[in-house]
Design a binder for these strands. Structure first.
Length: 641
RNA sequence: GCCGAUGUAGCUCAGUGGUAGAGCACUUCCUUGGUAAGGAAGAGGUCAUGGGUUCAAGUCCCAUCAUUGGCUCCA
């Protein structure tokens, strides 16, 4: 007998070699029907694999992340079986589960393939699923594996096997399809009740741009038809929040082919939003000892040679602007740091002066590949809420912690709760990619880790994600479609001070090198606003909304009173407008609701006589009447909270 | 940059090789109203651009540009 410990701590005894399925069956038949796989001592295995010794066992169902992943991985195999049945002779790359669903990379050879073929494949998948074929695991020798895929003619699988150790190779077979696979899998294909192929995309074999591009087919499956329906509905809802759609509808920004791709044009309401965000952050920064600076949009080539950016990005950037006479070359500024370094250098510094904090809403230009551009989240011209802190080595951690506080203040004020913090460190196996000494990197990396820990941030550490000049701490937020975006960033930099030969005089009367910290709580205004739009579905916090209230006169006769209301409320902190169109009140209300204007003030005979306004709140309806002053006071109060 | 999809009025979109369409928005007129769309008329188009096939192309083919879903990239 062996002891099986459950997640709740309960321990039960079973025969040696018992399977997760049998364990489930001993608890209830319903559970057994739903078990997809099992986590045994932290490792996920098939539910029919024998458990030979004492173990901690978690039965995995659809409600577990690992259960879903197993389900989708098995679905990928089923997709492959369907594809092979429909298009004999095609070759397969890899087919893993992803965050939502799965994909399979396929080499169709000369065959054309497009999403028009989805229906046929989906039908085939459902047909195969109905046969309830078991997923059968089989350990094979490396030689046998090679023989099998050589006969089958699948070069990609052979490429994968090449890197595998003999004795660790397993095949999984369901129906007529056998795949090289570590597993685990669900018991049989019958669990898969609903399928939807989502899209088709190109993907390089092993993610390498120089290798062949395969056709990647994305899909998602569910154990119930209704879950698929819910999922599709959720996607529809998410689409409604897309910042590109809302940006257009709310007249925040636009793009013009003539101006150029990836270069956003801010419309009046969008520009107002930007101004408010800038003002908000500048106030917070002023309190934290930042000073505003301003620098030009271009910089001399030598500036970027000094900074190292020319060597690293020169060829992949916007190409230089040349002067007609002297043959000088200037680059559009891709970042503000070199300029700020020169500002630091403009006079001698004492240790008593540090830290120095230079902030600038600096617009920068980067040549992003055309395929990377995406709404406001990836653009070629954008404004960073940039600042550079120059401090003594002993001040790094303290400054870092202050910046973390500032970022969290911003997130809190704008209602971002679901962020993750990522510490990006150097790839220890590829040190050539980075500028700077090992010692400097070690110092920088430990400063970030310690500051994050002392601020109780929950972080994930990613190796190889650091910038070439230093490690960083990034704050990531998810958009409406579940895509992760990096917002705030804090980066320690021991390299630029070196390259620019920045120094300060210490209390020992010797020259010392300051440490530089780059930081941007928003990341960029463009990306931040994009994520903000999706986060709040276009219903911004009242203080940020470009149009906070609208006066709706019942008819032309009350136009003058409406103007009086507008003028007595409008001040620098509150902005409103009048809808003086020749339309009925119902129509004006509808249009104001669609525009998501927070407050609607209906004025007619009654209001004019009593000097009041009838207030309607967006999404809530009529909230009663009050005097103009009462409304104004309430608004100011709401904005300052 | 690569693979796929898309491109028709300001917006959202119909359009089956044979005279370019709808709804909303816009302009004018009627209407002067009480909490989510009052009525009528009008104006608005090089069907992304450039080639080709055809008696005839928004429609079929090719190229280019842009948008878009991914891949690679993101100082």
């Amino acid at each position: 007998m062996i002891n099986i410990t459950f997640p709740d701590g309960a321990v039960r005894q079973y025969e040696q070699g018992v399977s997760a399925h049998q364990i489930a069956l001993s608890i209830s038949e319903g559970l057994a029907r739903n078990v997809l796989a099992a986590e045994v001592d932290g490792r996920v295995i098939d539910s029919n694999r024998p458990i030979e010794s004492d173990a901690i066992v978690k039965l995995l169902t659809w409600s577990d992340l690992e259960g879903k992943a197993t389900f989708w991985h098995s679905s990928a195999h089923l997709l492959a079986e369907a594809l092979e049945a429909l298009y004999p002779g095609i070759q397969f790359g890899i087919g893993p589960a992803v965050e939502t669903g799965f994909y399979y990379d396929v080499d169709f050879g000369d065959r054309e393939f497009s999403s028009d073929d989805f229906k046929q494949i989906e039908d085939k998948i459902l047909e195969l699923a109905k046969s309830k074929s078991e997923y059968v695991r089989q350990a094979v020798s490396k030689a046998d594996a090679i023989t099998y895929f050589t006969e089958k003619g699948d070069d990609y699988k052979l490429d994968l096997i090449k890197d595998l150790k003999d004795g660790s190779i397993t095949f999984y077979t369901q129906g007529n399809f056998t795949d090289l696979c570590r597993g685990p899998h669900i018991p049989n294909t019958g669990f898969i009740k609903a399928v939807k192929l989502m899209n088709v995309a190109g993907a390089y074999w092993r993610g390498d741009e120089s290798r062949k591009q395969l056709t990647r087919i994305y899909g998602v499956t569910f154990p119930k038809q209704s879950e698929l329906a819910d999922y599709l509905k959720m996607l529809e809802e998410a689409k409604k929040r897309d910042h590109r759609k809302l940006g257009k509808e709310l007249e925040l920004f636009t793009f013009s082919e003539k101006v150029g791709m990836g270069l956003p044009l801010w419309l009046p309401k969008g520009a107002a939003l930007r101004e408010k965000l800038i003002d908000f952050l500048q106030r917070a920064q002023a309190k934290s000892g930042y000073e505003q600076v301003a620098t030009p949009h271009i910089g001399h080539k030598n500036l970027y040679i000094t900074s190292g950016h020319y060597e690293k990005y020169g060829a992949d950037s916007f190409q230089p602007i040349k002067t007609p006479q002297e043959g000088e070359e200037f680059f559009l500024k891709p970042m503000n740091c070199p300029h700020h370094c020169e500002i630091y250098k403009s006079k001698p510094r004492s240790y008593k002066d540090l830290p120095v904090r230079y902030a600038e809403f600096g617009t920068v230009y980067r040549y992003e590949q055309s395929g990377e551009l995406h709404g406001l989240t990836r653009v070629r011209g954008f404004t960073q809420d940039d600042a550079h802190l120059f401090c003594r080595p002993d001040q790094v951690k303290e400054e870092f912690k202050k910046v973390i506080d500032l970022v969290l203040y911003v997130f809190n004020a704008l209602g971002f709760e679901n962020y993750t913090a990522q510490i990006s460190l150097r790839d220890p196996k590829n040190k050539a990619k980075y500028i700077g000494s090992d010692e400097n990197w070690r110092l920088a990396e430990s400063a970030i880790m310690e500051a994050a820990e002392e601020k109780n941030l929950s972080t994930v550490v990613e190796l190889g994600e650091a910038a070439f000049y230093g490690p960083k701490l990034d704050f990531m937020v998810k958009d409406a479609l579940g895509r992760k975006w990096q917002l705030g960033t804090i980066q320690v930099d021991y390299n630029l001070p070196e390259r620019f030969e920045l120094e300060y005089t210490g209390n020992d009367n010797l020259k010392h090198r300051p440490v530089m910290i780059h930081r941007a709580p928003f990341g960029s205004l463009e990306r931040f606003i994009a994520v903000l739009i999706e986060h709040c579905a276009g219903e911004f916090p009242l203080w940020l909304t470009p149009e906070q209230f609208i006066v709706l006169p019942i008819s032309e006769k009350y136009e003058d009173y409406a103007k009086k209301v507008l003028e007595s409320i409008n001040n620098t902190d509150i902005r409103g407008l009048i809808d003086s169109r020749d339309e009925k009140i119902g129509r004006k209300i509808r249009d104001a609701e669609v525009k998501k204007i927070p407050y609607m003030l209906v004025v007619g005979e009654k209001e004019m006589n009593d000097g009041i306004v009838s207030v309607r709140k967006h999404g809530q309806g009529d909230v009663g009447s009050m005097t103009i002053e009462e409304f104004s006071d309430q608004l100011i109060k709401e904005i300052t909270v």
